[in-house]
Every structure is written in structure tokens, then in C-alpha cells.
Amino acid sequence: MKKYFTRMGDGEALWQTEDELRADVDAGVEDAVKRGKAKPLADDDIAHLLDILMMPEKNVSVERGNEGIHTFDAGTLKIPIRLAVPVSRHTDMLIHERVLCSDTMELCNTDYSYKMVKNIAPEEAMQMEQAQQDVTIPIFYGAMPNLGLYTKPDGQFDNWAELLPQGKIKEGMEAQEGALEQCCEDMVMVSSQQAEAGADGIQFDTAGASGDADLLAALKATKVLKEKYPDTCVTMGMANEFTLGMHGKLKFEDDKLAGQYPRDQVKTCAKAGVDMFGAVVNTNSSRSFAWNLARSLTFVKECTEAATIPVLVNAGMGVGGIPLSAVAPTDAAARVSKSMLEIGKADGL
């Protein structure tokens, strides 16, 4: 029986028959249904996904007219820092605009957390103001809430990850409640300077990485910023497909945050004033690419159907079905791109 080239969730090459691909797709959908009580993909979506997985081309693309917009996290952290190309962040943004033809770009600091930017916030705002003179595409300023930085010894709060296993539940919850208020203040302070420097948008990236308190800090900051700067876009990129209940009882308005999946996360974010939502579904590196992509699409499609705001799916390494490897295989990345737009009905990436 004919075998098709595909990959494992860690990027390793794999050859599978159509029946094997179909079995992995079904199992991936079933996992999303079982874990997240998601609505399964329709038969025509599964047929389209199998077609994409079995396309003989190395790299594939959407059909004409199905394109979406693209955004970045860690935008200027890539070419000048991780790739060690000796160009300034200003030049990097122009490379994205005129060489890579990106739809948007993001300015960021190497230490990608709002708390770490606080000390250099005016200089970061100056960089944004200078870039806005030369760059035509929309520029975001982005960083992470990163609530863990507010624990001792870096911050003033006891570490809830140590308190909770000791049974100090109340102390752990109080530490998170204190930390999230400081984190929110820092996000508002840095983002306000960026908005006043002419940033087109603010990116709260990897929101919820430290659990529900981390996400609540970002939601509260969003609400403040949208009241102060209604013309500045706020986009929220999530940390994972399931909001961890490190606190467990936190709510934004009436929405309990712990245990939310993308279909619920997007509604709470919209309530806070978020303009664009970055859905995340984590890749399981020990399962196949077909399994991971089918699972991600199941969560994403349900999210885009529930959403009233644009959904831009996170499709970097280890999320959205992309294999968990530092250099993502282009054949897999292209299939994720096409699937998320055409099956997941995402507004972009």
C-alpha cells in the first residue's frame, strides 16, 4: 500500500499509509473531544485534512483568496538576536516589511517580559517612535506577563509553586493575588508608554503561562489600556490550550479562568476588550504530526466558531500542530498554515 511522507510531533520523518493517517487523525480529534469536550471535526473537514496530509508537494499553500494576516511574537528577537544577524531592530522591521513582506511586525526586548522592560520603558518607547517614521506596516510592542518573575528572590512574593505542595493553599493564593496586581501595573505602565509612542498594537504573549493569575493580570491590563487608548489594538496570545488553575478561584468579571479551553478563553478575552485572540494548542512530541494537527484543528475550529473577534492561531514550534523542534520542518509548517486557514477558519496566524 502506498505510503506518504509525514512526521512525528518531534519532527522526525515518518511514512504512513492513508489508513494509518486516517487512524491518527481520528484519534487526534477524539483526544480533543475527550479532554476538552470539543465538537468533533466534520467529515468534510477530515477529508480535506487528509488531502493536505497526502499532498505530494514538499510545501503547500492556501488556495487563492484564503489568505489570512500574520503577526509575530518575539518579533525583533529572531533575526538580530537568535539568528545573530548583526542588524538593528529598526532594520529588522524594515527587512520584515520589504523583504519578507510580513503583514505586521513586533518590536520587543531580548528579555521578553513586561517586568524586565519596565526599567528601559522610555528607551523602548523611543525605539517605537523612531521605527514608526520609517515602517509602513503595523508595529506591535510585545512581551509576556510572566508572573513567576514576581516571586522571591526576583520579586517580593512567596513562590506559590513551593507553597502549594506544602499544603499552604491560602498563602499560595494570596501570593498570586498580590503578584498579579503588580504584574498588571507593569503591563499598563510599559504599554501606555508604547501606545503614546505610536504603537499600532500591544501584544500580551504567552498569557496564562503561570496559570490563571497570570492570565487575569493580562485581562485586567487590557481593560485599562482599551479605556485609555481605544485606537491601539491589544492582542492576546495564550500560553496553552487549557488555563491552569494555579489559583483556581480567579474570575474576570463572571468568568472563571481555570479550566478554560480556547472556545471559552476567546470569549473572556473579548469581554476584556482584546481585539485579536491568539489560540494555542500544544504539540505532543511523542504522537504523529497527523494526530497533533487534527487535535489542534478540532480545538481551533470550535474557537473560531465561538469567537466574535479575530482568531490568529499560534503556529510556532511546539504549538498548533507544528513539531516540537528548534528548526520546524517547512513541509509541516506549510501544512499547518493551510489547514488552520482553510479548515480551522482562522483569521490568520
Binding site: V60, G68, H70, C101, S102, A333
Partner: peptide, 12 residues
């Protein structure tokens, strides 16, 4: 990867 996404599904 950014280049691949731009080529596969970006607006341009």
C-alpha cells in the same frame, strides 16, 4: 518558519 508561513498563507 516565518518565511514558510508568509508564503503558505500570508496576505503579502
Amino acid at each position: 518558519m516565518a518565511v514558510m508561513h508568509e508564503m503558505a498563507s500570508g496576505m503579502g
